[in-house]
Design a protein around this nucleic acid. Structure first.
Lengths: 147, 147
DNA sequence: TTGCTCCTCACGTCACGTGAGGTGGC
DNA sequence: TTGCTCCTCACGTCACGTGAGGTGGC
């Protein structure tokens, strides 16, 4: 009856450190509704988190940082991910192959949209590293030639 | 006597479009001294740019965006690049092998510092893309299995 | 000359940072 | 009980966005 295993016991400072961000940022994202439903809390009470929260916040912060998103874009991405989770649940709860096929196609569309955010950035960063690596090996070669 | 080939003839709007940014950002970066010495201009006169300016601004904007730098970090990077250009000039103007060796080692250090900004980000983005690709091919496989 | 783009303030906004003053829980 | 971390305003800051009112050049 009692859920002990996943009780929320961590406080915001610990979570901030684990997720590589700050308490202020976590509060701000919560205020904007980017972290899903907060559980009810009396005014002045401390916020409490569990492992799942840490995972979620880590992911949100990671995506925003790596993709350079605004909080509006981040919200859109989060909403797509929520829709995806919903589709996934429906997929697992049915065994009509026709319906399953439909759901898989929708899941695919969402994944494609996400990967299209990632790929061009990855290309650009890879090109940048390639450039710099080239210059580095050129310098190394000049050094060896001097010896 | 007259330098016509590299005369500054472009205006800020055109430059903004070519570099994928806005006039406001270019003015702001100029105000912060991130774009090198502006050439003298009477109050109210239009700013003028040439191809080299476009290249420089493109690079600055690219680095800031891809690496997610603050303008302070961007300034540090730009100063390192300026130091690098200086070392390069000195390298070309001497043929003392001892001195050249020293200069190459310093150039190497600067490049290594830059690549260390790029590499971890690239790793993370690559990991992210890999994750998503895996999920995509998994979905594709489920679809094929249904057929 | 007429549009268009540019100019310089200067205030607005987004994404938080940073106290100020107060309360909560090991 | 004493520290420490947390709480909620609320103002500050960074990196620009966005007018307002005016001038410059094809």
């Amino acid at each position: 009856m009692m859920k002990v295993a996943d009780a929320r016991t961590m406080r915001i400072g610990e979570v901030a450190e684990l997720t590589g961000t700050t308490p202020r940022t976590i509060r701000y994202y919560e205020e904007l509704g980017l972290l899903g439903e907060e559980d009810a809390r009396e005014h002045g009470q401390h916020r409490l988190y569990d492992e799942d929260d840490v995972e979620r916040i880590t992911e949100v912060v990671r995506l925003k940082d790596l993709l350079g998103l605004s909080l509006d874009q981040l919200r859109a991405l989060i909403e797509r991910e929520a829709a995806r989770a919903e589709l996934r649940r429906e997929y697992r709860s049915t065994d009509d192959p026709q319906r399953r096929r439909e759901l898989l196609l929708q899941l695919r569309d969402i994944k494609v949209a996400t990967v299209q955010l990632v790929r061009p950035r990855l290309q650009e960063l890879a090109a940048l590293e390639h450039e710099i690596n080239g210059q580095l090996t050129q310098i190394d070669q000049l050094i060896t030639e001097l010896d």
